[in-house]
Design a protein around this nucleic acid. Structure first.
Lengths: 230, 230, 230, 230
DNA sequence: AATGAATGAGCCTTCATTCAT
DNA sequence: GATGAATGAAGGCTCATTCAT
């Protein structure tokens, strides 16, 4: 039910977004732009403080509107939360589709492209906050988490699975438990995103580029067949 | 200041813990035992719902005491939170110390021992919840996060650094950016813990043992020198 | 002060009403006609939900206009309320004046005519809602209640007083406390109106015609001199 | 469903009331007395301002407690409203039962006793406010109104029906539409109560005793057989 | 004249905290 | 030491009112 609501609202959001480009009356444009301004402000605060600790006054203030204006666009605080998730999912899905385009080259290169692409288009953007938000609030909003899992994570895993299977088929990679490899390959990316929104403020600077390079290096090397001592 | 408080309180907690072992009069033991029942209940709920969304009534109910009793042991909800963190840190530190004991064997084996040990003694216990809690609330409790970082993470990284450096020194591992390797080696472990407290409820079962085996396998293989083409 | 305002506004309303009849240009008529559509919608909702529980959005929606339009005609929600009362008072006064016309016949017949006339022209129309409204809100709008009392109730009582006194003078009715008889004669009428807007929805159907017939029957019989036992 | 809730809660309230007499610890007595203190304060304000216009702050202040205390005893403002109704119904039912006790004398005397009794035990007490409240809010709380109708009004009508039928059977009263007579006999009583809580503040003093005497006088005379022209 | 987006004061409700028992 | 009734500040939400279009 909630999943259905998430889907429908998402479609509506997309259409509304298109309409925005067409009718640029100043008043009208403002009204169309409002929801995404509000969800952007909400995302920042939800990620920083968590859902329960975020006051709608603060969301409104950050968006430069009054508290009541929030309720012109969202029925409740919870509806705002779900809208934030939905807005974070649409671009993630789009990015995933884009990655599906045929790739020519080694499987190692494909793997690297997928991981780097995710980082560039999701992890390193404000959409990364959605990831941390989903994780932090998954127990309070199980259906939002479920939806995110079913549509974003499952799809991402499919991409990696295809790459890994291709590498194994061509003999570029050794035989391994592919599902576990997928999880192990994804984990550092998610952790990097989470890190950016949590302990990164404790002074331990992780250079994302270097982290990614090392991760891909270790992963690809770890997957490749070792010409062991024969 | 709070860090100081955390240190002091931690020391006090340790001493109290010692005192507890020394004077097990039924009356006294009861008094000392109570707080850990309370923090255990609080940890569960903090991890599940987050700090702000957790009601002290629920903590008290789960611990089987009245709400007022909480205030006999903790000055405030925030003090309870810090006590939860502290109680999660003490065993983590102890576990880390234990790992420092001399290890005989390959560096790959040492690495595997460290990672598995952390999982067995921290990640796979209720202490793993502390990790998720720290990450979720790091922005609301920066000094708790800082303290955790400085004492637990830094120490854990030292252990890994030593193992990696030893492997490189002996030629078992190839030359790499050690700091990045540490981060990449830790990330899947943290992610596994986080997963257990969040999206694992979305149906995607990750088998921790298999996940760990794959991670160590890929990591060790990735680190090892390729016996290429001789 | 407010009473004064009610008087003034009422007079103005009457004049405006007259002006309306005189200059029925479509433009002007539209403008003048609007408020009565608005007050009619407001009356319905005020009677049903009470003043405080009625939202102006709902009033506007029922009248088929936007919320802002209400403020083109009424300064505030309270002003709208008073306009509703005033609109209900003007016809009531007119109806009362009409009853003053000379009546030929028995005093019992006059009494019956007055009570039936009030029911036909006030109680049984949408003006009956005003009665319930005045009663429900009399403590929140004491001056509106006062005005209603002074102009409508007092005048109505005068009509009844005249009828009763005439009956007593002619010997048709026995000697009684006329003021109390007035109250007792009016009460069932008011109660009938109130019933129509409240508990009538609980299933106990009161047939107004039968109720009135019985009331007048009992009243006239009760007033008439009994030819007791001589 | 709500009716059921009304019944259950009423029973509980009665039991609690009994318990109060048994355990007069000062603290405990206070706690047991609280709910009725709160409903008493709420009744006053609900009757005066209506449900929607009454602020819980005012209810709490009148009861001499803080706003939060209300929520220790009632789940919501609406639950408080229903409790007020329930507390008004219990004594009304008890009073009705009491009237059922055998009466010796003329039917006219019985009728008079019933009407005066209702006034003394309900109408003229603070329970009269419940009547006005039910009527004012019947559309907003239809099930509360229904319950009041089914249990209080229906029962009251039964008492009057018995008296009227007895009088007709003995020939003391003439043949009439009994159901209509019941309504007409009750209406002035209800109106008197309503008057006390509304327009009575407009200066038209109705002396309840005189009003009742006149009502009974007219009613009984109206019902009695005329000894015409023999 | 008409609209409806925006505002913000106010109210219901929650919950951390206190304290009398 | 333990309880739980009481408190009141804080925050989610509503809605009368305003005003730019």
């Amino acid at each position: 039910m909630v999943v259905q609501s998430l889907v429908e609202t998402t479609s509506a959001a997309i259409q509304e977004h298109d309409a925005q480009d067409a009718a640029p009356s100043p008043r009208r444009r403002r009204k169309d732009a409002r929801p995404s301004e509000l969800t952007a402000a909400a995302l920042d605060l939800f990620v920083e403080k968590g859902f329960a600790a975020t006051r709608l006054d603060d969301v409104a203030a950050r968006a430069g509107v009054s508290k009541g204006t929030l309720y012109l666009y969202f029925d409740s605080k919870e509806a705002l939360f779900k809208a934030v998730i939905e807005e974070g999912i649409v671009p993630a899905l789009a990015a995933a589709e884009q990655q599906l385009a045929g790739y020519q080259g080694t499987s190692a290169g494909l793997l690297q492209a997928l991981l780097n692409g995710w980082w560039q288009q999701i992890g390193n953007t404000h959409l990364g906050g959605v990831v941390k938000l989903i994780i932090s609030e998954s127990r309070n909003f199980p259906d939002a988490a479920q939806y995110y899992h079913d549509h974003v994570i499952v799809r991402g895993r499919s991409l990696l699975r295809a790459a890994l299977n291709r590498g194994i088929a061509t003999g570029e990679f050794r035989e391994m438990n592919v599902e576990s490899c997928i999880d192990v390959a994804i984990a550092p990316l998610l952790m990097l995103v989470i890190w950016r929104y949590s302990l990164c403020f404790c002074g331990n600077d992780i250079d994302p580029a270097e982290f990614l390079r090392t991760h891909v290096d270790l992963l690809v090397n770890g997957l490749q067949r070792k010409e062991t001592n024969q």
